[in-house]
Design a binder for these strands. Structure first.
Lengths: 228, 228
DNA sequence: CCCGCCAACGGTACTGAGTACCGTAAATAC
DNA sequence: GTATTTACGGTACTCAGTACCGTTGGCGGG
């Protein structure tokens, strides 16, 4: 009669018990017992007690990797945005489950650490991807890749957490907006390769000088960077 | 005759055994035995097997918090820079020990995760500090704080790892340079309050258009933001 | 000198996560 | 039908971490 697969029953039992007694106060034996299976079966479906809460981080990480490797240079930044959106949509799809997990990670330090470690793996993937497509192995370029990856992940976390707390009604739009804000921090490096335009590059800075005072040096700078 | 305190002997024994057999292959009993003490004594000095490798993350975290709270608004960014430098100097002071730890965290996933979790605590501290001094509780301001904290920490990690790998001879200078680069990403929010200048704000973007084509809209934009 | 005190240590025993291995029942292939 | 896979339960083990108790060795005050 109990046709629901053991894997599901175990997850349900685990979340129910975590809610009732708390995470540390719940043993794997408790979970298995409530799910009506043996202790061995639990570890057959989940490698650890923590993994029952984060069941598909591995799959998600693989999906991100796939999205990144199947991208040409011209669509690189789009690929990063897409990959981030992938993660966000996954959480949204989970719906209430994601929020219950958030409640747990907010209370239990061990789970928060685990979550952070997972996010760090995403970040590492992004960093390597960005560094690869920049080609430049300089220290400053490497730092740049590190910063971009950190920004992308931080923006994602920010929007995701807002949604998890119920502070956002349209997280996807917020994510797009946040990503725009992040990418605006970095002068887009793709333009020069993507097209042979002789356009204008405007660098971000602030100065007390008037725009007209700056124009000569601006022109000089642009001529210096574009060749002539 | 063995006058060296048990705490030191335990740390030495632990690092030696980790080098010889690897982290997972070394039990706490092994460490205690080599240090010539009982197993209980180990846990009296270190709360866990991992903590023998990261003995003073708590102290460092407290030091950072101290540095941050003892700062006025005008010296806020200086305080963040100082706090980051504090961490870097701590590692440099450790010297070879820091490098042995780095070798371990590079190989053992559990230790890497632990390290990442510690760094995340620094980042959280920075984020809260920056968000506090911004005052603005808007979503975009909150995102901004998140991004700045992520950048500061990412820059620190980048320089620190370079030094740990022996790729940097003057990490402190590199850190200053990296911090400059990070702060350059964010238009300094203090300019408008600090002085009543009617200067020019240049926004970063790229376009295919020529500079002269852009000038009118640039002027319009500037007049729109500065009042008239 | 002895007493009481306190800190550091060792030993034993326990809980609980995770692993290894073995046996078994049902489903599926052939 | 038999053989093989698949999923499961049970037992026994290792090891990290906790709790508790007893012991030793100073150390100052009487």
């Amino acid at each position: 009669m109990s046709k629901t697969p053991a894997r599901i029953r175990l997850a349900d039992a685990a979340f129910a018990l975590f809610d009732e007694r708390g995470y540390e106060q719940t043993t794997v034996d408790d979970i298995a017992e409530r799910a009506g299976v043996g202790r061995t079966t639990f570890f057959r479906h989940y490698r650890s007690k923590e993994e029952v809460i984060f069941p598909d981080h591995d799959r998600l990480l693989a999906a991100i990797k796939d999205r990144l490797v199947t991208s040409s240079h011209s669509t690189a930044l789009v690929a990063v945005s897409d990959a981030v959106r992938l993660v966000l949509l996954h959480y949204i799809e989970e719906g209430d489950l994601a929020r219950r997990r958030y409640a747990l990670t907010s209370k239990v330090a061990a789970l928060r650490d685990r979550e952070i470690a997972s996010v760090a793996r995403y970040q590492r993937l992004f960093r390597e991807f960005i560094a690869d497509l920049m080609g430049d192995p300089t220290a400053t370029a490497s730092l740049r890749a590190e910063l971009m990856a950190a920004n992308v992940v931080a923006a994602h976390n920010h929007v995701l957490r807002r949604w998890l707390r119920g502070e956002s009604s349209d997280p996807v739009a917020e994510m797009d907006e946040a990503m725009r804000e992040v990418l605006a921090l970095f002068p887009a490096p793709s333009v020069h390769e993507a097209s042979g335009d002789d356009g204008t590059t405007v660098i971000a800075f602030r100065t007390g000088q008037d725009l007209d005072t700056l124009l000569p040096s601006l022109r000089r700078f642009i001529e210096g960077t574009t060749g002539h």
